[in-house]
């Protein structure tokens, strides 16, 4: 159990930031992970009153506040329309509704947990993170920094920004049971015309790669998808734990990537068909 003497319900990001400069204080997300730690800290910083529990949609991007719950993320109309089934698929295995009502996007992203479905999703989507002091940076930069420097560690994550550059996205995971931690997570997306694949629960934290081989350049077929999956699996190190071995995870990277990429092709086909239909209609008018 996490023990502490002070509870700070801050009124501003500045206040939160200042309190967080003290090593003995920690910022609360959903507290699900923090509470499992057997340690005593000085105080906890609660961002609940800072309006960070909102998802804002503009022409260019979604801005997802750090305190948005995973359940709100899952149910947001705009995001659902934009990301389709991948959003739901990346979240529905996370324990249950009452858990996702507590867990926050900020908690999941800031912690850079190896098992994080959320990190895997946003990494493939080329999202950005916005810190109070450090400002905006690509999530990929934040996720790959190892270890975090002191400044970032003591900074306050305000939001995840998802620019609207996503053309298609597909998400899959392998789990030993439906609500277990994943054995492997995998998200493939076409962002700004580039295929990106992120892989998490390796069991190390999620990382991503883009299609540097141009394997998919001439179209996605079962053959190119399989070859690409194999190539992607070679790009990542995997490890073993009680849930699965490194070898198995390697194989799963190839399989999930292949399936995700095939799904991207389906989505693209559907979009083309739609566009074509609209154009035809326009022509007739």
């Amino acid at each position: 159990m996490l023990k502490f003497k002070q509870y700070y319900r801050v009124k501003s990001l500045e206040e939160a930031y200042e309190l967080n400069q003290k090593k003995s204080n920690v910022v609360l997300g959903g507290m699900l992970w923090l509470k499992l730690q057997r340690r005593t800290v000085g105080g906890v910083i609660d961002l609940s009153d800072l309006g960070l529990d909102q998802i804002m949609e503009t022409e260019e991007a979604f801005t997802i506040g750090a305190m948005v719950s995973l359940r709100d993320l899952e149910q947001h109309e705009g995001l659902r329309a934009y990301l389709g089934e991948a959003l739901h698929e990346s979240l529905r295995h996370i324990v249950g509704v009452q858990f996702r009502n507590v867990a926050t996007v900020g908690g999941s992203i800031f912690g850079r947990f190896g098992f994080s479905d959320v990190l895997t999703l946003f990494l493939a989507l080329d999202a950005k993170v916005k810190f109070y002091h450090a400002g905006e940076m690509p999530l990929s930069v934040y996720a790959s920094a190892a270890p975090l420097d002191k400044e970032l560690k003591n900074d306050i994550l305000e939001a995840v920004i998802l620019p609207k550059h996503v053309e298609a996205v597909a998400y899959r995971s392998v789990r030993n049971s439906e609500t277990d931690f994943p054995v492997l997570t995998c998200c493939a997306a076409k962002v700004n015309g580039v295929y990106r694949v992120s892989v998490g629960a390796r069991p190390m934290r999620a990382a991503y790669t883009a299609d540097l081989t141009d394997m998919l350049k001439d179209g996605i077929t079962p053959e190119t998808a399989a070859a690409f999956g194999k190539w992607v699996s070679e790009q990542f190190a995997t490890g073993s734990n009680v849930r699965a071995s490194a070898d198995y995870r390697k194989k799963m990277i190839a399989v999930l990537t292949k399936r995700n990429v095939m799904e991207l092709a389906e989505t693209e086909k559907a979009v083309h068909a739609q566009t074509a239909a609209v154009q035809t209609k326009g022509g007739q008018a």
Partner: peptide, 26 residues
């Protein structure tokens, strides 16, 4: 049959020491 596991570590302790690790069917 499918996922309830008890793994003894090298020191004799048990890896699945919670319902987060010891997965009963949902």
């Amino acid at each position: 049959a499918l996922y309830e596991n008890v793994t003894y570590m090298k020191d004799g302790s048990i890896a699945e020491n919670s319902l987060m690790e010891y997965k009963i069917p949902s």
